[in-house]
Simulated scan of single mutants.
Amino acid sequence: MVQELSLIGIGTGSPAHVTLEGVQALRDATVILLPCKGAGKNDLAEIRHGIIAASGTDARVVTFEYPVRDEALPYLTRVDVWHNEIAARWQAVLDAEWQSGPVALLVWGDPSLYDSTIRIARRLLPAPAIRVVPGITAIQALAAAHAIPLNTVNGPVEVTTGRRLRDLGWPGMAETVAVMLDGECSFQHLDPRGIDIWWGAFLAMPEQILRRGSLGEVANDIIAIRKAARAKHGWIMDTYILHKDT
């Protein structure tokens, strides 16, 4: 029985994003689970391997294939089934490979913000003690890359998803909106008047791309750059911050 599972936030692509606590958690682990996300995404695994090597850990690295979501299912059902399958694959690997000691899993960004790793870990049976080691979020990395504060003085900020931005529009009384998990450039569905955008992809990697400006002026540029970068790399991770002049 796995008694402790450490979920380690590793930031957005730079080994320097891993905290000293995260490095120690890697060194304490006896097994590190590493996901393989399919053809064209090998560099994601390579980044994780680089972080593991830099930590100096003696842990054994075991890989598992990431399942694909069934797009035919309704959204919430699709995600629930997907999470069950991820947990089942973790379970199968651990049943076959684990012998003793703590297990670690590297989580892109931070496990607490728009990430389901903690929820998935709670589906393991028997349930291990879950240790969460915080990391740099994509929002932090984006704000730092653009050298901006996330909020205005006393101004409200909302963190949401591209899906909600498309379905519900600008959220409530927020001045600033940080958008996660948006593969469809949902900002193009907003009235751009009075809105500025700070966008970034491949944050903290050598491939990092940044764009900023009035939404009406740079939206099409961002859409084109994103499409080209995705075609070149086979994948893309991006996020953006919107601010409305109220």
Results as ranks from 00 to 15, higher is better:
138 A>T: 01
120 I>G: 07
79 V>Q: 12
83 H>E: 13
91 Q>D: 10
73 L>N: 05
111 P>Y: 09
101 G>H: 13
114 Y>P: 06
103 V>L: 04
82 W>P: 06
141 A>H: 01
71 E>K: 13
73 L>I: 09
96 A>T: 09
109 G>C: 05
64 F>G: 03
88 A>F: 08
86 I>A: 01
97 E>F: 00
88 A>Y: 09
93 V>E: 09
105 L>A: 12
101 G>T: 14
131 R>S: 04
127 A>P: 11
80 D>V: 13
84 N>A: 15
76 L>W: 12
66 Y>S: 14
138 A>W: 02
125 L>T: 15
83 H>W: 13
100 S>Y: 05
109 G>W: 02
143 A>T: 08
145 A>G: 01
94 L>T: 07
129 A>Q: 11
123 R>V: 00
69 R>E: 03
144 A>R: 00
84 N>L: 15
122 R>N: 07
70 D>M: 09
79 V>P: 12
96 A>E: 08
67 P>A: 07
91 Q>E: 10
123 R>M: 06
79 V>F: 11
68 V>Y: 13
82 W>I: 12
92 A>L: 14
128 P>Y: 02
82 W>E: 14
91 Q>A: 09
74 P>R: 07
70 D>Y: 09
74 P>N: 05
110 D>K: 06
146 H>P: 01
89 R>C: 01
126 P>K: 06
99 Q>K: 15
67 P>Q: 05
113 L>V: 14
130 I>D: 02
115 D>C: 14
113 L>M: 14
116 S>A: 15
137 T>Y: 09
75 Y>G: 07
146 H>K: 05
133 V>P: 00
96 A>I: 06
130 I>S: 03
102 P>A: 15
111 P>N: 08
144 A>T: 04
106 L>M: 08
93 V>S: 05
146 H>S: 01
63 T>R: 07
92 A>T: 14
95 D>A: 12
87 A>T: 01
84 N>C: 15
88 A>C: 08
78 R>N: 15
125 L>K: 15
137 T>H: 06
137 T>N: 07
93 V>R: 03
71 E>S: 13
77 T>W: 06
144 A>F: 00
122 R>P: 02
146 H>R: 05
66 Y>D: 13
120 I>A: 08
92 A>K: 13
136 I>V: 06
90 W>K: 05
138 A>D: 04
111 P>Q: 10
119 R>A: 13
129 A>Y: 07
86 I>R: 03
83 H>T: 07
66 Y>P: 06
78 R>C: 15
127 A>T: 12
64 F>P: 05
